[in-house]
Design a protein around this nucleic acid. Structure first.
Lengths: 303, 303
DNA sequence: CACAAGCATGAAAATTATGTTCACCCTTTC
DNA sequence: GAAAGGGTGAACATAATTTTCATGCTTGTG
């Protein structure tokens, strides 16, 4: 969407503590009943929050809107969104130690789904296209794909590699910085290096991409911050949006965003390597099958 | 909302032919670009539709709104709804080799978000409660937590372990079946074993849980099939729903569901281990910090 | 401690947007 | 072809929004 109020309510909640007192009162009022706020005139809002219209205007400006109308529309948009998505009613609250599980779950779900949706909204499909084609070309051609991510991002990279290998892509994930750097140094033009880091500031990953670039490989960054050092180092950037409601939540949902992006890359590669690879697909599926117990009629469980 | 705009745009389209000419022009303009309409003042709208403000007011009344503000909010709400719905529509389609990326993305997003929501809907919170408390008790008490999953599920388990370790839980993830079995054999009453398998039929994982149970550990299965052998082996079952639109998609979104469940477990443990652990949390965050390049000036969001 | 500098705030003025009235025009109908 | 009736916009009235400005409060400094 062009003009977005995406996560407006979330942002309000986040920024609320940093706001001057009068503005806080306005924010609270809006958060307490967004629907009503969207209907109110600026005077209403001012009165009910015990402030003045001038303050409300300032409030809008502070949030980056041109004026009250902008805020109103943004709130209304959010209401529409929430109405459509049942789970997002509880949107964007933070988690406190004493919150019941039901609520915690609601918060996590909304953070995750919103992260996924926003990532999808803003993803640069052209870049994905390029990445996928490059990987697809690497199949059976002796070209290599090196993927690197540490900490939480490692889960995403492992998964990508695991899947790409099923497609017969010569693809590796390095568990630690040293071997990642060595592998990067062995890359050549035509090869591909993918670095994943939520913050875009993980030194090891940046060095990994830089090393790869130096040796002529194409470099791709997967990060939430398109202006981070990692992004600047890379040729192509795939942006993963996250909901900055709280630091902890952002970290959790970042993984979902990363997976989404990498899933798409994976599927796109599978599409582009058709049909030679469909076979590889089936083969690996069958190999795994033998480790599974046979499909069987369902036993009536005790639980 | 009192006068709601449910399907406002649809209604406009329906009623358009029956409207007088000037009002039609207004309706068309709105339908052509609802977003822009929501941003415009009544004068803008009048000018661009070649009518007068008076006409636009009449238009609002005709539709049952109290005035222009009402219409505006209704349009904005619709926009939000549409934006949200966009990712929900594509459900139940499959992916074919020739589908464009945009569509593939839509299918993946809807499969993932739906999997997340359904998992949340059906999750047995009581079981989560028990698991979380057990893990929380394990902190600093010499009790152990062993987690095992192979293939795709390994990503989820690695992540869980990574996070739990930050909370000072004595927690391990085994990379392969043999060491998983040995570790399971070393478990004792009070310890916990978590086995993750989408299908619930991965032999290694089942054996792992069985071994753990034999030694008196509490056993938890995370699987999409609550009546699978894995589930029957385990004491507690956390069910991850997936959308069975296609085999491939189910596998992709299964990971999101697993992550959701394990995220919840993680947060629940963090809650229950407060406050001794808040410190551990900060500490690890800081240790990682030094590997990051310094934070840089934050973009104060324009608009 | 006095004082300046800097913000936050609301009162009131200025501007703009919105709603209302009314005169006109174009159909339609008899 | 005249009267009735709805549709329309110009002009006005009202209300909402924005801007300006004076004031009080905090913060840092000599």
């Amino acid at each position: 969407m062009a003009l977005d109020g995406e996560g407006l309510l979330a942002r309000l909640r986040t920024e609320l503590p940093g706001l001057p007192e009068a503005l806080q009162r306005v924010a609270e009022l809006i958060l307490r009943d967004p629907e009503e706020a969207a209907q109110s005139t600026i005077v209403d809002l001012a009165e009910r929050s015990g402030t003045s219209p001038a303050t409300v205007t300032r409030f809008c400006r502070t949030l980056g809107f041109r004026g009250y109308a902008g805020l109103r529309v943004a709130i209304a948009t959010e209401i529409g969104r929430a109405a459509q998505a049942r789970w997002e009613i509880d949107v964007d609250r933070d988690i406190a130690p004493d919150h019941p599980l039901q609520r915690v779950l609601g918060v996590i779900v909304s953070a995750d789904t919103q992260a996924i949706r926003e990532t999808a909204d803003r993803l640069d499909l052209t870049a994905v296209e390029v990445v996928a084609s490059t990987i697809a070309e690497a199949i059976g051609s002796g070209r290599r794909v090196e993927v690197f991510g540490v900490g939480s991002s490692a889960a995403a990279t492992t998964e990508l590699v695991f899947r790409l290998q099923r497609l017969r892509v010569a693809c590796w994930h390095r568990a630690e910085a040293h071997s990642a750097l060595s592998s990067a140094a062995l890359l050549r033009p035509g090869d591909l290096a993918i670095g994943v880091s939520h913050s875009g500031r993980t030194r090891e990953v940046i060095e990994f991409l830089a090393e790869a670039a130096e040796h002529g490989a194409m470099t791709v960054a997967v990060t939430s911050y398109p202006r981070s050092p990692l992004a600047e180092t890379a040729e192509l950037v795939l942006t993963t949006e996250t909901h900055e409601t709280s630091f902890r939540l952002a970290a959790l949902s970042a993984l979902h965003s990363q997976l989404l992006v990498l899933d798409l890359v994976y599927v796109a590669v599978a599409q582009r390597s058709h049909p030679a690879v469909d076979e590889a697909f089936e083969l690996t599926a069958r190999a795994v099958q033998t480790h599974r117990l046979p499909e069987h009629p369902i036993r009536k469980g005790k639980r």
